[in-house]
């Protein structure tokens, strides 16, 4: 974590506030606190904010404000950021998941790399409680952590061109779920029938940053039954 956040312009209508350079719950908490501070105080000219692991993108309208003015206003929050901590209890979300087989083509490799059995990988992945750090990449994709080092696995060297919707993957200490069919390089260990994104409602994503997530192993028959619901 930096002693104080760093500010940098990103083109003519956005700025990036960096709190650190790692995947860390305390750093991520600060990102979301600043996001909430901007939302609650309705800073003039800010059109939207995009929280990530360790940074917040502030997208603004240059007709209404400027980079210098925004940095000045955001710096004011620095000493009192804690006032903008989440005041509600984190939501708990359970994600039923079929591990391995055709739904999790990389499960065996993950097990082999760590000299574990398939069952051990499934147990470790599903017994860990994850936090949603951010939504990004594609619509509704939750970036979650931390995956224990005992099963953390780097991305595939060559990304796949097509990963089916609902695929559960690991990339380093992160785990995530592909909301729709997409190319991608994460190690796919399972698949969930849960729908993660619906553009026809105002809160289009199932997950929100701060959510606590657990994966619950299910069998294929349960997957198919849930898919029909």
């Amino acid at each position: 974590m930096f002693s104080s956040p760093k500010y940098a312009p990103m083109g003519d209508r956005a700025l990036l506030v960096k709190f650190g350079e790692s995947i860390d719950l305390d750093i991520n908490r600060k990102v979301h606190m600043l996001n909430r501070a901007i939302e609650q105080t309705k800073i003039v000219g800010v059109e939207e904010c995009v929280p990530a692991y360790a940074s917040l993108l502030v997208y603004y309208n240059p007709l209404k404000t400027s980079y210098e003015r925004l940095v000045y206003q955001l710096k004011d929050f620095e000493p009192n950021l804690d006032e903008f901590d989440a005041c509600t209890e984190a939501r708990q979300v359970v994600v039923p998941t079929v591990y391995g087989g055709e739904f999790g083509p990389d499960l065996a490799d993950v097990a082999k790399l760590h000299s574990l059995t398939l069952e051990e990988v499934i147990r470790i992945h599903s017994e860990t409680e994850y936090t949603v750090y951010m939504i990004g990449f594609i619509e509704g994709f939750p970036y979650m952590g931390k995956v224990p080092d005992s099963i953390a696995t780097p991305r595939l060297e060559t990304p796949r061109l097509k990963i089916p919707a609902g695929s559960v993957g690991i990339a380093g200490n992160q785990t995530g779920i592909y909301p729709c069919e997409s190319p991608g390089g994460w190690r796919i260990i399972g698949r969930t029938p849960v729908k993660l994104f619906n553009p026809y409602v105002q809160q289009p994503t199932l997950f929100q940053p701060g959510d606590k997530v657990r994966f619950k192993p299910i069998i294929k028959a349960e997957f198919e039954a849930l898919l029909k619901e």
């Binding site: 990036l16 350079e21 929280p51 990530a52 940074s55 993108l57 380093g172």
Partner: peptide
């Protein structure tokens, strides 16, 4: 590798 952060058109 860098930690993932936000992107916008023009980056």
């Amino acid at each position: 590798e860098l930690v993932t952060d936000a992107l916008i058109p023009g980056a």
